[in-house]
């Protein structure tokens, strides 16, 4: 054991960074992860000033903001304008969750007739103003960092905020779920059973939960870095799964993430319309 004196006294900043949380088309689950930080939230509040977080407090302040956390996808013209304003007012903009980073489950409408959807869901669809697509925030404005997941992992959220406070690169993995399965000793269900698992092409971050409970990964953290979706799909299509099942597996929470979208479109005999925007 060794001890060295405290040579770097805590820097006193002129002001605490101002944090704002914004919501677009989403279920609120990712923001909830911030609330469920509980113990860490107090410590966070020491270092950040949370000035706009409607889910937690009705007291909201105007911009500019140092950090904006953005949840949800763009599905209306007014939201298309609102994200521009938020971008202009925010020094660092971080998108959180599958909706904000890939369009979310609602991006399934990119493959369908959205007017038809509105008619079947709402009694008076004439009052519903909506775009025909659901798209990621980064399709509209510059994003400084994307945090994946459906919902995001709260520990990763803390890591990202911490890295911003410390002015360093966030440590979130780019590798796929398999590495985490192996680290936790899970037997590979893709090899030991006929389960079709998206783990080999999905970014880690969830802690490899599903395979540990004998269920194939369904890709909620989106594509891993340089994923080989096509070969995995071809392998599964050989003998364990039909395109009728594999396409919906790829078109899930991250349906419109380009790598999943293109692979699904390639193997789907009935579709060529997943192109967003």
């Amino acid at each position: 054991m060794s001890t060295i004196p405290n040579s770097s006294p805590t820097v006193t900043k002129s002001h605490k960074p101002r944090l704002a949380v914004f919501k677009f088309a989403s279920c609120d689950g990712c923001q909830l992860q911030l609330l469920s930080c509980e113990d860490e939230l107090l410590s966070l509040a020491d270092q950040l000033e949370i000035v706009h977080f409607i889910e937690a407090s009705s007291q909201i302040e105007q911009g500019p903001y140092d950090i904006a956390l953005v949840e949800g996808s763009i599905t209306t013209t007014s939201d298309r304008g609102r994200i521009q304003t938020i971008r202009q007012q925010s020094k660092t903009l971080i998108t959180i969750g599958a909706c904000a980073t890939a369009g979310g489950i609602q991006a399934l409408k990119n493959w369908a007739d959205h007017a038809e959807f509105a008619r079947s869901v709402y009694a008076n669809p004439q009052y519903v103003e909506t775009l025909s697509t659901s798209t990621a925030i980064a399709d509209h404005v510059r994003v400084d960092f994307e945090l994946r997941g459906c919902p995001i992992n709260r520990l990763q959220l803390i890591e990202v905020l911490q890295s911003l406070l410390a002015d360093r690169r966030p440590r979130t993995p780019a590798h796929c779920v398999c590495l985490d399965c192996k680290r936790r000793g899970t037997v590979c269900i893709a090899v030991a059973s006929d389960e079709a698992c998206l783990g080999p092409i999905t970014q880690a971050g969830c802690g490899a939960i599903c395979p540990a409970y004998n269920r194939g990964c369904y890709g909620c953290f989106g594509p891993a870095a340089q994923p080989n979706c096509d070969y995995l799909a071809d392998w599964y299509l050989q003998d364990r799964m039909s395109a009728a099942k594999l396409v919906p597996l790829l078109r899930n929470f991250n349906a419109a993430a380009p790598e999943f979208r293109d692979c699904g479109d390639r193997i789907d005999p009935n579709s060529d319309s997943g192109e967003s925007l």
Binding site: C176, L179, K182, G199, P200, I201, P227, N228
Partner: peptide, 13 residues
Amino acid sequence: ASRCLSCTNCTMV
């Protein structure tokens, strides 16, 4: 390279 997923499984096992 066209077949490998770069998934790390071979090195882990």
